[in-house]
Simulated assay, not measured.
Amino acid sequence: MKKSIVPQDFQHYYDDWHFSPVIESDGTVYLSGVTAARKDKPISTDPEEQFHDAFYKLGVYLAAADLTYDDILEMTTFHIDLRQHIETFSRVKDQYIQAPYPAWSAIGVSEFIPQNSLVEMRIVAKRC
């Protein structure tokens, strides 16, 4: 059985795009791609600020499922200009994700739907 979890600030994703920001099945939680896109703030063109905004949004998604960053089992991150921004991204990531670290794959891509977005994160988490 699966359960859709939609943080109130992101209900428009479910309504307009027809996907669940968070879905739980058998105690495992899957998060749809998380970018820095929000209704209340444009995506920053500063990579460091944008990465903090993406992790803020990730925290909102996790909290909606009664989870924290510590519950992340696997992270797949997709990056525009991966080589140019990976050090900054890693530095920001380490402010949110602590040891024991989740499995992580970083992949370079060419574009995302939200304009100016540099990263999108796919997350698998479980209450540990």
Results as ranks from 00 to 15, higher is better:
residue 1 M to D: 13
residue 1 M to A: 12
residue 1 M to T: 11
residue 2 K to P: 11
residue 2 K to N: 12
residue 2 K to D: 15
residue 4 S to R: 15
residue 5 I to E: 02
residue 6 V to G: 09
residue 6 V to A: 10
residue 8 Q to I: 09
residue 8 Q to E: 00
residue 9 D to A: 04
residue 10 F to A: 00
residue 11 Q to N: 02
residue 11 Q to T: 01
residue 12 H to S: 12
residue 13 Y to Q: 14
residue 14 Y to A: 01
residue 14 Y to W: 11
residue 16 D to Q: 11
residue 17 W to T: 05
residue 17 W to K: 08
residue 18 H to P: 02
residue 18 H to R: 09
residue 19 F to R: 08
residue 19 F to V: 07
residue 20 S to E: 03
residue 21 P to T: 12
residue 25 S to L: 14
residue 26 D to R: 14
residue 26 D to M: 11
residue 27 G to P: 10
residue 29 V to G: 00
residue 29 V to T: 03
residue 29 V to R: 04
residue 30 Y to S: 05
residue 30 Y to W: 12
residue 31 L to Y: 09
residue 31 L to G: 00
residue 32 S to Y: 11
residue 33 G to C: 07
residue 33 G to F: 04
residue 35 T to N: 05
residue 36 A to T: 07
residue 36 A to H: 03
residue 37 A to Y: 11
residue 37 A to V: 01
residue 38 R to L: 03
residue 41 K to E: 02
residue 42 P to V: 04
residue 42 P to E: 08
residue 42 P to W: 04
residue 42 P to L: 02
residue 43 I to T: 02
residue 44 S to R: 13
residue 44 S to T: 05
residue 45 T to W: 13
residue 45 T to C: 12
residue 47 P to D: 08
residue 47 P to W: 09
residue 47 P to F: 04
residue 47 P to Y: 08
residue 48 E to H: 11
residue 51 F to V: 02
residue 51 F to W: 12
residue 53 D to I: 06
residue 54 A to D: 15
residue 54 A to P: 15
residue 57 K to S: 05
residue 57 K to P: 00
residue 58 L to M: 00
residue 62 L to I: 08
residue 62 L to T: 05
residue 64 A to W: 04
residue 66 D to K: 15
residue 66 D to L: 11
residue 67 L to Y: 08
residue 68 T to Y: 06
residue 70 D to S: 02
residue 70 D to N: 03
residue 71 D to A: 06
residue 72 I to H: 03
residue 74 E to V: 12
residue 75 M to T: 08
residue 76 T to K: 13
residue 77 T to W: 13
residue 77 T to Y: 14
residue 77 T to V: 11
residue 78 F to G: 04
residue 79 H to K: 02
residue 79 H to W: 04
residue 81 D to M: 09
residue 84 Q to T: 06
residue 84 Q to A: 05
residue 85 H to T: 00
residue 85 H to Q: 10
residue 86 I to M: 11
residue 89 F to Y: 04
residue 89 F to N: 04
residue 90 S to V: 08
residue 91 R to T: 05
residue 91 R to S: 12
residue 91 R to Q: 13
residue 93 K to W: 12
residue 95 Q to D: 07
residue 95 Q to L: 11
residue 96 Y to C: 05
residue 97 I to F: 14
residue 99 A to G: 05
residue 100 P to N: 02
residue 104 W to F: 00
residue 106 A to S: 01
residue 107 I to T: 10
residue 108 G to Q: 01
residue 109 V to S: 02
residue 109 V to T: 03
residue 111 E to F: 12
residue 111 E to H: 14
residue 112 F to K: 06
residue 113 I to A: 15
residue 114 P to V: 02
residue 115 Q to Y: 10
residue 115 Q to R: 15
residue 116 N to C: 06
residue 117 S to G: 01
residue 119 V to S: 13
residue 120 E to T: 01
residue 120 E to D: 00
residue 122 R to P: 01
residue 122 R to Y: 02
residue 122 R to L: 07
residue 123 I to A: 01
residue 124 V to N: 09
residue 125 A to W: 15
residue 125 A to H: 15
residue 126 K to P: 11
